[in-house]
């Protein structure tokens, strides 16, 4: 059994987003980066499956060398090896094409991703990759049981929740509570130092190019209503046609 986990590297959820001096790009200076929280759920579940089945676990990231410390963290958590496709692509379509190209001849049984990358929030890389490889696809997956080559999944749909059964190979977009986030052990950190991060050149040409960026600041009224007059809130909301 071979598992691939694809991780995005994104600004920490508490980051304040600003623009660089050209006013056309998000300023990456001063931002702390993390492995995407959903991708972290996917990785955590993949590590559990690895422990259960002795599967081989590879982590893949499409991005620049700046991300290597975070890739190392995934190795410390239990991935066997890592691959970085050296591209600064920001659009999901492009990222998916790179992943398809890489995974095409590697016969992974299970490819696990987050349901969406929290920077560009597209939520489509897993579906694109699944179609590109001809694998089964589900997202968002909230529970995953793996037994005798069969998957039993709890998924979210547009109308609610469903329980489904599927077969390998499959690509899954994961979300909580599929697993608990894991913390690397001291031993994990030590062994990760000797594990390999293979760097591969990108293949495709971008369709989409970024020309500018804008930060959204929603101005809020910050009007306080004394608790004695709490009821007046209802009149205010009515007069504004909000209720």
């Amino acid at each position: 059994m071979k598992i691939l986990v694809c991780i995005s590297v994104v600004p920490d959820t508490t980051s304040k987003i600003t623009l660089d001096s050209s006013n056309t790009r998000i300023n990456s200076e001063g931002l702390t980066y993390i492995v995407g929280p959903y991708d972290d759920y996917a990785l955590s579940r993949a590590i559990e499956i690895k422990e259960q089945t002795q599967a081989e676990l590879v982590v893949l990231h499409v991005g620049t060398a700046d991300s290597e410390a975070l890739i190392r963290k995934c190795l410390a958590l239990g991935a066997d090896s890592a691959v970085r496709i050296d591209s600064s692509a920001i659009d999901s379509y492009q990222v998916a094409q790179e992943i398809i190209q890489y995974a095409q001849d590697k016969s992974f049984d299970l490819i696990m991703m987050g349901k969406e990358a929290i920077d560009y929030n597209s939520g489509i890389v897993h579906a694109l990759v699944a179609h590109g490889l001809g694998y089964n696809h589900f997202s968002p997956v909230m529970h995953l049981d793996f037994d005798a080559g069969k998957l039993t999944l709890e998924i979210e749909t547009d109308l609610g929740k469903s329980k489904v059964s599927s077969t390998l190979p499959a690509v899954l977009g994961c979300q909580e509570p599929i697993a608990e986030w894991k913390i690397p052990s001291m031993r994990g950190i030590m062994t990760a130092r000797t594990k390999e991060i293979t760097v591969i050149a990108p293949t495709k040409v971008n369709f989409e190019s970024q020309i500018s960026a804008q930060v959204i600041e929603t101005e809020r009224l910050q009007k306080m209503i004394p608790v004695e007059n709490a009821e007046s809130l209802i009149d205010m909301l009515k007069s504004e046609n909000l209720i």
Partner: peptide
């Protein structure tokens, strides 16, 4: 074509350009 996309969970937008007539 020029597209404005919502990014970073609504904290910002980016404008991108795509070439070609199909998308």
């Amino acid at each position: 074509y020029q597209l404005t996309k919502s990014v970073f969970s609504g904290k910002a937008t980016i404008t991108t350009e795509i070439k070609g007539e199909s998308f």
